[in-house]
Simulated assay, not measured.
Amino acid sequence: MRNLQVKEQKVKELTEKFQKAQAAILTSYIGITVEEDTELRKNMREAGIEYKVVKNTLTLRAAKEAGYGEIEKYLVGPVAIAFGYDDPTAPARVLANFADKHKAIELKAGIVQGQIFDTQKVNELSKIPPREVLIAKVLGSFKAPLSNLVYVLNAVKEKKEANA
């Protein structure tokens, strides 16, 4: 295969990833050690996130084909992309948690459910708990009033039984 064909194939694959992903977070990784990179990739795999380092020219071509050409201004220096297909908050959260411990990682921007997010928005997104935690909180908020209602009804029943 010729070099041009290889590049065209990579652009095609990246375009599909941009279109399929719930979130694609761009990050700078200058100064990260091999051990840190291995740890980051392991964290990404465990969270179901695909982490890729791709040339900026190929990334820009794929982003433009997917309709996200505006990310061009964030493609400066070495950039890696974290693709999340299930949970749109997961890539930002995993990267932000890693960046807290390893200052070489810097969140640059992202594409989240079709919208371009700048660094500030990506950082805000990283603070949203996982979907399962949010569901548990909602269910917990339903459970508390129901538990109180059961407690009150039980108290009324016991009071009536005591009076009878």
Rank of each mutant, 00 (worst) to 15 (best):
A155D: 09
R2I: 03
A23T: 03
Q113R: 11
E161D: 15
G114S: 13
Y51K: 00
A104F: 03
A24S: 14
I116G: 05
Q5S: 12
Q5F: 13
P91V: 03
P88T: 00
E16F: 06
A136R: 08
A164S: 11
K7A: 08
L146I: 11
K10L: 15
L125K: 12
K137V: 06
L26A: 00
T33M: 06
V76C: 01
E161P: 15
Y74R: 06
Q5H: 13
Y151A: 13
L139E: 14
I32Q: 04
Y85A: 09
D86M: 08
R2V: 01
I49N: 09
T119I: 09
Q115Y: 13
V138W: 01
D118P: 13
V94H: 05
Q19H: 05
G114E: 14
Q5P: 04
L58Y: 15
Q5V: 11
A21L: 10
V6W: 02
L134W: 08
A144W: 08
A62H: 10
L139D: 12
N148Q: 15
T59R: 04
V34H: 02
R131Q: 14
V76L: 06
Q113I: 05
V138D: 00
A82S: 04
F83L: 10
K12M: 02
A96Q: 10
T59F: 03
A82R: 04
K73D: 03
T38L: 11
Q120Y: 14
I81R: 09
D37P: 04
V112E: 08
L58E: 07
T59Y: 08
V94C: 04
L26G: 00
S28P: 02
T38G: 05
N97A: 15
V6K: 08
Q113M: 09
A155T: 06
E124G: 15
I25Q: 01
A96I: 10
Y85V: 06
K121L: 14
